[in-house]
């Protein structure tokens, strides 16, 4: 187990290193010149050149990359070209909002996904099951942008139950969390349904029925706990899904998280910020996968580490 842990950690570090290299190459190859973005349109060619020198943009690729990497290992992500602020501060000021949103979305998708999956499995092949599965299909396919605007319009503007975007109180988090969790709810309901059906067909369930246990007790005490385990193990992998979702959801609801930061940085070719957000989200995804690999065997001994 320990050797496995060490190997997985080493692999993860390697993956992150690879991500720094690939992102750096991509941003290096972008034809847009950040020095010109900073210099503005009234700048002379000398001013632009001067800025390139100051930022070290004239150095060969590997020198630039090495400088970035050594600084990164010391925890220095550089300063934003346009805001001139420390990238680490920009991210730190926005990370709590994104984490809160993700946590709320996980709770939402589990509540909705598991409930729907359980009901559908118990009513298998009946109208309720068909209806719920159509719903889950819609939630998987619907674009988050549309869902977000729709929820805003109905529940915030027409009914006035929630604020129209923004951040601060519990009521601010409800609609963005539902929008972000909607997709996951669809996935979880499908997985929970098939996992339940799996367990329902197993011998120990038949034995329990033969012993004369009440149906509700069998479902609650034996079927659901067994069916839920493989699903809980998936949450770590969800983080990757959320990382792409928050860019859209944060921009619809004006949620001050790192997705919004990333979107603005990309539009303005603010390379240090793009690199910073990419590294933070990549680290989150790698950690999520690690967690999934290690937590899964702990809560479900049937999954073996190798």
């Amino acid at each position: 187990m320990q050797a496995y842990l060490v190997r997985r950690l080493f692999e993860s570090a390697l993956i992150l290193l690879g991500i720094t290299l690939v992102t750096f190459i991509l941003l290096y190859l972008v034809p847009a010149d950040p020095a010109r973005q900073i210099a503005g349109r009234s700048a002379t060619a000398e001013t632009v050149q001067n800025i390139r020198d100051q930022l070290g943009l004239n150095d060969p690729f590997f020198i630039q990359y090495w400088r970035y990497l050594t600084a990164l290992l010391q925890g220095d992500m550089g300063r934003s070209y346009l805001q001139r602020a420390e990238v680490s501060e920009l991210i730190a000021s926005r990370l709590p909002a994104s984490l809160l949103l993700m946590l709320a979305a996980i709770v939402t998708e589990l509540i909705f996904g598991l409930t729907i999956g359980i009901v559908a499995a118990l009513r298998r092949n009946r109208p309720a099951d068909h209806g719920l599965m159509i719903f889950s299909f819609v939630s998987i396919s619907a674009p988050q942008f549309v869902i977000g605007i729709l929820l805003l319009y109905v529940f915030a503007v027409k009914l006035g139950w929630f604020p129209i975007g923004g951040y601060g109180t519990f009521s601010h988090v409800v609609l963005p969390a539902i929008t972000l969790g909607f997709l996951g709810a669809g996935w979880y309901s499908r997985m929970m349904r098939s996992s339940m059906i799996d367990v329902l067909g197993q011998d120990f369930v038949r034995t329990a029925q033969a012993k004369g246990l009440a149906k509700g007790r069998i479902i609650l005490r034996h079927v659901i706990p067994n069916a839920i385990l493989p699903i809980i193990a998936m949450i770590g992998i969800d983080i990757g899904l959320f990382m792409s979702g928050i860019v859209v959801v944060e921009s619809v609801f004006g949620w001050p998280g790192i997705g919004q930061l990333a979107w603005q940085a990309i539009q303005r070719v603010d390379i240090p910020v793009i690199m910073g957000v990419t590294m933070v989200s990549a680290t989150a995804i790698v950690l999520g996968n690690l967690l999934a690999d290690f937590v899964a065997p702990m809560i479900d001994p049937r999954i073996k580490t190798k």
């Binding site: 605007i149 805003l152 319009y153 915030a156 503007v157 006035g160 129209i164 975007g165 923004g166 951040y167 944060e250 921009s251 619809v252 609801f253 004006g254 949620w255 001050p256 919004q260």
Partner: peptide
Amino acid sequence: FEIGLEPTVALLRLQQGQ
């Protein structure tokens, strides 16, 4: 200055007097 509001959302806010 309220930041982070899509123009569409901003219009809804204005229509609601916010």
